[in-house]
Design a binder for these strands. Structure first.
Lengths: 214, 214
DNA sequence: GAGTGTGAACTATTTCACAGCT
DNA sequence: AGCTGTGAAATAGTTCACACTC
């Protein structure tokens, strides 16, 4: 039940298991086996069991996992039951898309601030509830609203300074879409999503397939 | 120099090395060591050398890597010198953001089609050059324009059927932002970008840090 | 009989360490 | 002297296989 040395990959799969369980639950199913989950997600049953076993025995031998219980345990582990005060920095096309992205707002990530450095955007409505604020008001916003997670949707060249600022005022986690390597202290939880790297990886895959034919 | 068994992680780092080299090149630097690249990107020098060695000896012992040469070799390996006919399916906020995302268009990914199933969007201008087309015209578009890569920005529930359609008509690579596991044949190159999983992973990291204190 | 939980075996990836070039 | 290229060692992650429970 010690979670210290659990790999990031296991955690990500846990989030995916959760989504899978939600789906099965909607279909009215009450119980699943590791084999069924694996089938659904393209994973080996043993991988599923191993991942789940890190957090304790959720299943019943001979039966499988009770979906409601397992989903609620996972949501607890991943902090989905808690509301995470989140902000978005950079309100270009991507920032706007993230503000409305399903699976951010509704998975416990409560977006309480949207910031941009462009004075023309500042003051305009980000959505029904939020206005775009100046990046200069980030420190105060973090302090007053208790923002814990920052989502970076700025150009690459602004990302590091924004991240430094967020961390300086107390943000503990960063999800960055900026195509640049961020440098942050050990204690900060970071996830970098690199869209153009993903494209390149797919392109390479096609080249390899064409050359080696599988 | 055989590229068959090279891991996806190595390929992704290669794309990141390329970006790093571009940056150093702009700064007027001509030569780097694996140690400098590693420093810049938070990687061990030996990792950098190992990755590069899979594709042959690019470096000079005692000197390092000539930036221009290495960058051009990497861009060749990753297919950046080739133009990839790409389409975006799903023109909501995310699809719109991807259409304008720097590092898609300018890294050899030429977006030649934007599709949506919403009749209200179909026919409207996606950008200066493209109109939104109906998903029903995907087959013809793939055939006529030789589309090779599809970017999925639809809701989760539509993603699998769109992917099936794209593959059926000849698309060879998929980058999906839909929060669902896709099932595709072996020969198809796929990259799934899961935004809400990234958020959950960051949230878990914060919880772990608070509990275990590093 | 069916299916979990888990040590042990296996496989993949990273890091070390050093011979060999410039 | 400095730095690459690369086998070998170390580490991490996955899969197997089976004892154990329902």
């Amino acid at each position: 039940m010690y979670t210290s040395r659990i790999s990031k990959q296991t955690i990500k799969r846990l989030a995916i298991y959760y989504r899978c369980l939600e789906k099965l639950h909607k279909e009215g199913i009450r119980t699943v086996s590791s084999h069924q989950i694996g089938e659904e997600l393209g994973l080996k049953a043993s991988q599923v069991r191993k991942d789940l076993s890190y957090f304790g025995g959720f299943g019943k031998r001979g039966v499988g996992y009770e979906i409601r219980t397992l989903a609620s345990r996972i949501s607890k582990i991943l902090g989905m039951t808690r509301s995470w005060k989140t902000c978005i920095v950079g309100f270009g096309n991507l920032g706007r898309a993230l503000l409305h992205f399903p699976g951010i707002r509704d998975k416990g990530f409560n977006i309480v601030g949207v910031f941009d450095k462009d004075k023309k955007k500042v003051g305009s409505a980000a959505d029904d509830l939020l206005r775009v604020e100046d990046v200069a008001s980030i420190p105060m916003a973090i302090r007053e609203r208790g923002i814990e997670i920052g989502v970076i949707a700025t150009p690459a060249e602004d990302a590091q300074s924004v991240v430094d600022l967020l961390i300086k005022y107390g943000v503990k986690g960063i999800v960055s879409f900026a195509p640049t390597k961020l440098s942050v202290p050990e204690r900060i939880s970071v996830e970098e999503i690199d869209i153009s790297v993903a494209l390149s990886s797919v392109a390479f895959g096609i080249i390899r397939m064409e050359r080696d034919g599988d």
